[in-house]
């Protein structure tokens, strides 16, 4: 199986993308399958690190949790911008020690933190597992650290490690 189809997920998503870009027909299905198959073989030449997903069932939960958080923090940042200079804010940097070491998990965490308005990933040191983020409205530093650890980092390490 692995030898015939090296990256099944990549092949499937490329085929799906081809069918979305063109109208669905048998010819496009065949052409897209050939192209996706060729592209997945070209990918083996790059030898990317393969992420191992241990808990598939947690991925939809993480997805909906992130979706809700993005919506809520959109509203929060929008009110901050609307209130303008009338309200005192203290933006600041926080350093968070992380237990999560898996590169894919860290990449997903980076995408989540940056896509959520109000937090931005700035720097990460792989040798001691420290992460620095910038927060737009920093009220309680420890609350932010606990939030990121409990809400995302634990779930990501369950999925990937």
């Amino acid at each position: 199986m692995r030898r015939v189809l090296p990256y099944p997920l990549l092949t499937a998503s490329l085929l799906l993308m081809w069918l979305l870009l063109n109208k669905f027909s048998l010819g496009h299905l065949l052409l897209g399958a050939v192209i996706a198959y060729g592209a997945s073989w070209a990918m083996t030449a790059l030898q990317p690190a393969k992420p191992r997903i241990r808990r598939w069932d947690l991925i939809p939960r993480l997805f909906f949790r992130v979706l809700g958080d993005i919506f809520r923090s959109n509203l929060a940042v929008a009110t901050i911008i609307l209130k303008g200079k009338r309200r005192q804010r203290t933006p600041g940097f926080i350093v968070i020690p992380l237990q999560l070491r898996d590169p894919t998990g860290l990449a997903v965490l980076a995408c989540i933190l940056t896509a959520t308005p109000g937090t931005a990933w700035i720097e990460y040191h792989a040798d001691n597992g420290r992460l620095m983020i910038h927060v737009l409205d920093l009220v309680d530093e420890q609350a932010w650290i606990d939030l990121i650890r409990d809400r995302y980092a634990r779930m990501l390490s369950e999925i990937f490690e």
Partner: peptide, 10 residues
């Protein structure tokens, strides 16, 4: 840095 994410998410 936080501001354009409003436009790119919601």
């Amino acid at each position: 840095v936080h501001a354009p994410t409003l436009g790119t998410t919601c």
